[in-house]
Write a protein that binds this DNA or RNA. Sequence first.
DNA 1: CGTCTATTTGAATGTACTCAAAAGCGGTGG
DNA 2: CCACCGCTTTTGAGTACATTCAAATAGACG
Lengths: 197, 197
Amino acid sequence: MNSEIPSLYAAILANVARDVTLTPAEEALFTALLLPQQVARYDYLLQAGQAAHYLTFVNQGCVRTYASDAHGKESVLAFAVEGWWCADFASALARAPATLTLQALEDTQVWQLPAEQLEALYAQVPKFERFFRLLFQQGFVHQQRRLTDQLQVPAAVRFARFRRQYPRLSQRVAQRHIASYLGITPEFLSMLRKRQA
Amino acid sequence: MNSEIPSLYAAILANVARDVTLTPAEEALFTALLLPQQVARYDYLLQAGQAAHYLTFVNQGCVRTYASDAHGKESVLAFAVEGWWCADFASALARAPATLTLQALEDTQVWQLPAEQLEALYAQVPKFERFFRLLFQQGFVHQQRRLTDQLQVPAAVRFARFRRQYPRLSQRVAQRHIASYLGITPEFLSMLRKRQA
DNA sequence: CGTCTATTTGAATGTACTCAAAAGCGGTGG
DNA sequence: CCACCGCTTTTGAGTACATTCAAATAGACG
């Protein structure tokens, strides 16, 4: 592989390398599992009810992961842009039907890592068990912070923090999706925006 | 160890055994790290601002983990009874000052696993990396579910679910702590109780 | 341009909160 | 055993934050 031509896998390997150091052979083993997928804007990577087969790494584009309730109300659990993982982890890892939906908000290019192959991967290269331990550990902490915010911070402040923490995302995704992430209606978000101007 | 006399470590070893199978030598290695601690009702295992040194396994009793905001409002993130782990994981694992507080709600007996020793433990017995991968994986999924509920389910329904899901706990801990877990005021919880009678 | 969807605006409503006070409950000491 | 103290829970009135519904405006895309 010419060092001046970045590998197809550059982004995902860099992501893994943040937490564990792989040998070239281990990198090859890993990348051999990855399935590339191109998803058009507004198309679905996964719909609630389907079997969730993959953990998804976003190479380019943007994906929202959301839960729908009985009345069709959607709550965004996560936005994933370049360099982020997304999935219905609960379903993929337990081989249960998805309860979440993953939709591309832009033309999006991802790597799909088949969940079925994870056990074999852990067995062959224990560093991956470490990698995913760290991924879930960080994910757990992140979800816990978000829950804390939801429990004790008013919507106006949650919105201000979201803007500060993800300035890019605030531009990139529709207001109604941000509202859904914050747990408020688009109408109320619009009012908050006017106030904070 | 006489098989008729359950080991001091029976509960915690059973908990680990749910996810990984240890040899007697590995069990010994693990239990050698554990520090027993007895905490009186209403005493603290950890207070916000302190260094968080341990992951805590509850042997007997009940611990609440909560976050306090600037106005002193407390939000319960988790209750841990016999057989559950609790900690300010974010702080213990990053060696940062605690942001959460852990308080015993009853006379409580725990095992403290020093976070500093985790890396060495993973290196010696990779099964523990697997164990904690699974612990955080499950924790992540659980937090995500709770967040989803918080985002889209009204308080009355959250309360009904809590009662159904944790009938024991509903008896065991004070209403105000349940209110705090649900993200509502004790007054409002009291009203919900009257309605649902 | 015209159509479709997203955002904004406003009025009426509902859910949950604050504050204050009363009632209930458990422990302790007289 | 009862009376009292402190804390938790309940009750109620008034309020605030956020929603629903409907309609107007603005933006995006063909």
